[in-house]
Nucleic acid binder design. Structure first.
Length: 692
DNA sequence: TCGAAGATAAACACTG
DNA sequence: TCAGTGTTTATCTTCG
């Protein structure tokens, strides 16, 4: 593949030839693929047409370049005085438009085949794409030429305007050029989005060491309408088969955009999503509303009398026919699955873009807020109660209304009101109200990114973070290398990460202690160096609390005493804990396999290693306890007196010589030599404590 | 209106 | 004795 990429930087002619050979690849693949290519557009014809098309594009490019060169030469020669330049301008615009609008290096047909025939390997795709680089480089040069040309023309226009001459033609030229520039920028953005989409689909593969540069030319070679059309064609591969032959017109970019969805034509061009999601062209609000008005049967895939399956747009007179069409044409098959996958990628891409925009907005608002709070001298100690009250208003602010949140320095509000509205822009709308139930109810633990994204903000602005104490404690613990923290370290993390928690220490420290005790997910473990806290992520996601009125969460002497009293066999069970270790290991491994947790990584996905281990241990031992402990009330599921032992068990693991490796040591220990360790665990700590 | 959940405060116990 | 830690309970607020 790299060799082929090396050949791609040859002359354009070779690039075209390579492109045609790539088309042969497509052809072969298409012929191999269940005879789909034997439709109205045979792959061979398509390959020939592509070749011709590519050549035409190349010619257009060359013509455009020549004209640009001529234009530049004329400018250089004639200097500033050239009224004729205005006469030249119309001639200039034609080739430029030809060069910039129509010729994209990958033709729609090619891209259609690439995307349509997903049997194409990424290597083949990459070859195809890389083969376009030479052409794209040329096109880049053309663009640069054109930009220079524009600058010169604008300069000249300005000078001529100063001279008192302002022909309308010149103004038109200038406006056209400006519009074109804007279009060019927009086009590039859209193309980059589309490229990202392609990458995510696996259609574009970028080697880790491979620079992203080769992708740029491709991106610059597409225009929104064409991307849009490509997408349509990709997602409606069979629509061409349906409308035999006549759909050649549908491959025509302009006719399709005009005829198929005239009302949304502007959106196709202007809407940045149009390039990445052909469906969006159908999902214009206008059409959506129309569909709801006209069709009592509302279906996400049906509206305005057409099938909204991405790229389909088959006309269905009524809902029944649409259902028939849906079942017949969009049944569960490879193509539909692939289209669905593509659509998923599109959504992901959009989400990615949304996230980026959110981040940008976040940075903007953070910037504004920091500025607004800087002049404040010694902000008043933030009252948590008032914070809660105020946070409500912030929570009521929908993301749409966020721009209206008072963040301007002139707004007579405290940082408290500004804070939540700022820091929750990335997460609030997805999980609901701020602070409370941020993560527990929705089982969406805050990620490091959530905090890290606003880390500087929290550090500097005395704003209450919109997360619950439990979420923050969990985050603090999970951020630690060992996934365990002492209480004091948790305190330090709070004060280090949040300026807000540098005040009212007594309040929030007490809250932390309360939360640590109250939440089942926080497990206190103890060793000879002291006690520290770990988090059971699974339990955290369950969001369970310790029920009131139940025995203490941790009281080694009492609990273990009680435990032994009520379960005389427990010690034996513990000592022979290998009986549990086997299923425990199996459960642990299965859990890790389910979550795709690599054994030798530190649980980047929610840091579940320790949590899983603890949870698995707990589940296993609790399961055992259910058999051995008939006295234990069921009022607090999962919180048997064994918990008094469980933390010790968990804690004991890091004492292993491999302790330094953190979760890894836990896993390896549990996997390899559980018997010895567990025997030691259960015999040492609790028994000794109890004996003492 | 009600219950759940979170926050806060306070009391109490334990430990070094 | 005291500070730190941990647990529990009561009360209030918010939200669904």
């Amino acid at each position: 593949m790299m060799q082929e990429s090396g050949t791609e930087t040859k002359s354009n002619g070779s690039a075209i030839q390579n492109g045609s050979s790539g088309g042969n690849h497509l052809l072969q693949c298409g012929s191999l693929r269940e005879g789909r290519s034997n439709g109205e557009t045979p792959a061979a014809d398509a390959g020939a047409a592509e070749l011709v098309h590519a050549q035409q594009q190349q010619q257009a490019l060359q013509v455009a370049r020549q004209l640009l060169l001529q234009q530049q030469q004329q400018q250089q020669v004639s200097g500033l005085k050239s009224p004729k330049r205005n006469d030249k301008q119309p001639a200039l615009q034609v080739p430029v438009s030809v060069a910039m609008m129509t010729p994209q290096v990958i033709t729609p047909q090619q891209m259609q085949q690439i995307l349509q025939q997903q049997v194409l390997s990424p290597q083949q795709l990459q070859v195809l794409l890389q083969q376009q680089q030479a052409l794209m480089l040329q096109q880049q040069q053309l663009q640069e030429f054109y930009k220079k040309q524009q600058e010169q023309l604008q300069l000249q226009l300005l000078q001529q305007q100063h001279a008192g001459k302002q022909p309308k033609e010149q103004q038109q030229v200038a406006t056209q050029q400006l519009a074109f520039q804007q279009q060019l920028l927009q086009m590039q953005q859209l193309q980059q989005q589309h490229l990202l989409s392609l990458q995510r689909q696996g259609l574009l593969t970028i080697q880790p060491g491979q620079p992203a540069l080769p992708l740029q030319p491709l991106a610059q070679g597409m225009i929104p309408t064409e991307l849009q059309q490509l997408w349509k064609e990709v997602t409606s591969a069979h629509s061409a088969e349906e409308t035999t032959g006549s759909n050649h017109s549908s491959l025509d970019l302009t006719t399709t955009c005009v005829s198929s969805s005239a009302p949304s034509k502007t959106s196709l061009i202007m809407n940045p999503h149009a390039s990445t999601n052909g469906q969006l062209s159908v999902h214009t609000p206008k059409r959506e509303s129309l569909s709801h008005e006209e069709h009592p049967h509302s279906h996400p895939l049906y509206g305005h009398g057409v099938c909204k399956w991405p790229g389909c747009e088959a006309v269905c007179e009524d809902f029944q026919s649409f259902l028939k069409h849906l079942n017949s044409e969009h049944a569960l098959d490879d193509r539909s699955t692939a289209q669905c996958r593509v659509q998923m990628q599109v959504v992901q891409q959009l989400e990615l873009q949304l996230a980026k925009d959110k981040e940008r907005l976040q940075a903007m608002m953070t910037h504004l807020h920091v500025k607004s709070t800087e002049p404040k001298a010694a902000p008043q100690p933030l009252n948590l109660v008032s914070s809660v009250t105020l946070s409500k208003s912030a929570s009521e602010a929908s993301p749409q209304s966020l721009p209206h949140t008072p963040t301007t320095p002139t707004a007579p509000i405290t940082p408290v009101t500004q804070g939540p509205s700022v820091i929750t822009t990335t997460s609030m709308h997805t999980v609901g109200p701020i602070r409370r139930r941020y993560s527990d109810k929705y089982n969406v633990p805050i990620s490091s990114a959530d905090i890290a994204q606003n880390q500087e903000f929290y550090k500097n602005a005395e704003v209450r973070p919109p997360f619950t104490y439990a979420s923050l404690i969990r985050q603090a613990i999970l951020e630690s290398p060992e996934k365990q923290l002492t209480l004091n370290e948790i305190y330090n993390w709070f004060t280090r990460m949040f300026a807000y928690f540098r005040r009212n220490a007594a309040t929030w420290k007490g809250a932390i202690r309360t939360n640590l005790s109250l939440h089942k997910c926080f497990i206190r473990v103890e060793d000879e160096f002291g006690s520290f806290w770990t988090v059971d992520d699974e339990e955290f996601k369950r969001g369970r609390h310790i029920q009131r009125g139940r025995p203490r969460k941790y009281c080694p002497d009492e609990n273990f005493d009680e435990l032994v009293t009520h379960n005389p066999s427990l010690i034996k069970n513990m000592q022979t804990s290998h009986a549990y270790c086997t299923p425990l290991n199996a459960a642990l491994q299965a859990s890790m396999a389910e979550n795709s947790i690599p054994l030798y990584t530190t649980a980047s996905m929610g840091n579940p290693t320790l949590g899983n281990l603890a949870s698995a241990i707990r589940e296993e031992l609790n399961g055992a306890m259910e058999h051995t402990n008939s006295n234990e009330s069921d009022s607090s599921p999962g919180r048997s007196p064994l918990q008094a032992v469980h933390p010790v068990h968990v804690k004991e693991e890091p004492l292993d010589p491999e302790e330094a490796e953190g979760p890894l040591s836990l896993v390896t220990t549990a996997n390899h030599s559980p018997d010895f360790d567990h025997d030691r665990d259960y015999e040492d700590e609790p028994v000794n404590e109890d004996m003492e």
